[in-house]
């Protein structure tokens, strides 16, 4: 086989490897944010008090939520009561796709593309908010936050679970702190005031609005921060670094010395190395 043809045969392999490498090393799915809604509100908060919206939400609730959360959100063995969850909770869970829940009831809800359209989310949020007393969708003001203070607060209060880079981390018994890569500013703020899952509530007694804004601003900055050192390797520390050092670095170097060194032990000095029939027939000889 000509060397050109052999090289061409490698093209799909190399292409596939590069794609896989790029996916592994670099790809951090960026949040696709619409120009006019950089904070990720999605819904029109002024419309939440509209009785028509609430009625539409009640209809959607009866179709998609009642089987777990019970009629009127009073809860059931399969899902918690959400009468006092408030607009912030409904907004957080619906916009991040965590609700409707895909797994078993005791499994941690995972982020996925939202199941409902923006209007439907607006209706459902309005309905859940109408059920009782819960936190409203917060006003996020990134410009009121202080980036450096946000960093200090994040490393002191969030990094233990979400990791200093916001890549997320493991909790015990299958629970995990999710990656903050694609969380919108509103979702980050909401998570702090509602404390979803294992996460503690960042109560007003402990954190001022300005401090919460600072944290959101820091996470937002982390997301947008490039990686000056090259491929980020997922920003999860020495594990992928060790993998690259062992497999690509050391493995690549070993492969090269394998190719430049003599491989068969017990051969006489090489100049007239006979080609063995086995090699000739399989094309494996050199």
């Amino acid at each position: 086989m000509g060397s050109r043809a052999r090289h061409l045969r490698l093209v799909p392999v190399v292409a596939a490897a590069s794609v896989a490498l790029a996916a592994l090393l670099g790809a951090r799915a960026g949040a696709v944010e619409e120009e006019h809604d950089p904070l990720g509100y999605v819904v029109d908060r002024a419309a939440l008090d509209d009785p028509a919206t609430v009625a539409e939400g009640a209809e959607l609730f009866r179709i998609g939520c009642v089987s777990c959360h019970g009629p009127g959100g009073v809860g059931s063995p399969r899902g918690p009561a959400i009468t006092d969850a408030g607009a912030a909770s409904a907004h957080f869970y619906l916009t991040s796709g965590r609700m409707p829940h895909a797994g078993a009831p005791d499994e941690q809800a995972r982020r996925k593309p939202p199941a409902y359209t923006h209007e439907e989310i607006e209706d459902l949020v309005a309905y859940v908010a109408s059920l009782g007393e819960g936190p409203e969708i917060p006003d996020v003001h990134l410009e009121e936050g202080d980036l450096q203070e946000g960093g200090d607060l994040f490393r002191g209060n969030c990094a233990a679970c979400h990791s200093a880079t916001g890549a997320g981390g493991a909790l015990s018994y299958g629970q995990h702190a999710p990656s903050l890569d694609v969380a919108t500013p509103v979702q980050i703020y909401e998570a702090m005031i509602i404390g979803p899952g294992q996460m503690p509530v960042f109560s007003p007694e402990a954190f001022s609005e300005e401090e919460l804004n600072s944290i959101v601003r820091y996470v937002e900055t982390l997301q947008g921060l490039g990686d000056p050192g090259g491929f980020s390797l997922g920003r999860i520390g020495p594990i992928p670094e060790g993998f690259v050092a062992l497999v690509i670095g050391t493995g690549g170097m070993m492969l090269t010395v394998f190719l430049i060194g003599r491989r068969r032990h017990g051969e006489a000095e090489p100049p007239s190395e006979p080609v063995r029939p086995a090699d000739a027939s399989t094309g494996a000889g050199r």
Binding site: G151, A159, A164, T165, D227, G230, R235, V244
Partner: peptide, 14 residues
């Protein structure tokens, strides 16, 4: 590796 792959980004760790 040093030029292409980021290792130990200490600025993120604080």
């Amino acid at each position: 590796l040093g030029g292409l792959a980021q290792i130990n980004p200490i600025w993120l760790y604080g």
